[in-house]
């Protein structure tokens, strides 16, 4: 078995020390500090990014709350304006209606007065027409002229009986 031949032992140990030592030196002095630095930088960058994201999220939440408030305010204002306009419009409409109604009522009243006057006049003329008619009938039947005054009295009595 070549492994048990001690001739090469010193040489192998020597080169083991040289190569292992060189590798240790390269790793400890150059590679590992750099790797550690890279890993640490990355860890810190990720941490900072997370922190920043958290901050942005808070800001976004605040902005959203502001937006919601503004939206609610605008909606309330719009509703108020709408209601006020509607009230004004309905008030104006009611006023116009009232005015129209009053005007119509006046006209109705005037018309009724006119009708009543016409009625009364017509009624007043009726007695005259009746008397005239009676005189005319009497004259036709009797050939004598009736007494105007008596006729008027008789018509009045008849009208009063009615």
């Amino acid at each position: 078995m070549p492994q048990l031949d001690p001739h090469s032992f010193i040489s192998q140990i020597f080169w083991l020390i040289v190569t292992f030592g060189a590798l240790y030196w390269v790793l400890a002095k150059a590679a590992l500090p750099r790797i550690a630095q890279v890993l640490e930088d990355r860890r810190r960058a990720i941490e900072q990014d997370l922190e920043k994201a958290e901050k942005f999220k808070t800001a976004a939440t605040a902005t959203l709350a502001g937006y919601t408030d503004a939206l609610a305010g605008a909606r309330r204002k719009a509703q108020d304006g709408l209601r006020a306009t509607a009230e004004k419009a309905s008030a104006r409409a009611a006023e116009a209606q009232a005015k129209l109604a009053a005007k119509l009522a006046d006209e109705v009243r005037a018309a009724e007065t006119r009708i009543a006057a016409a009625h009364k006049r017509a009624e007043g003329e009726l007695d005259g027409i009746a008397a005239e008619l009676a005189a005319s009938v009497t004259e036709r039947l009797t050939g004598a002229r009736a007494d105007q005054a008596r006729l008027a009295r008789a018509v009045k009595e008849a009208a009063g009986e009615r």
């Binding site: 040489s11 192998q12 020597f14 080169w15």
Partner: peptide, 8 residues
Amino acid sequence: DISFTNSA
């Protein structure tokens, strides 16, 4: 003997 060998 510290020869550079195949092992080294």
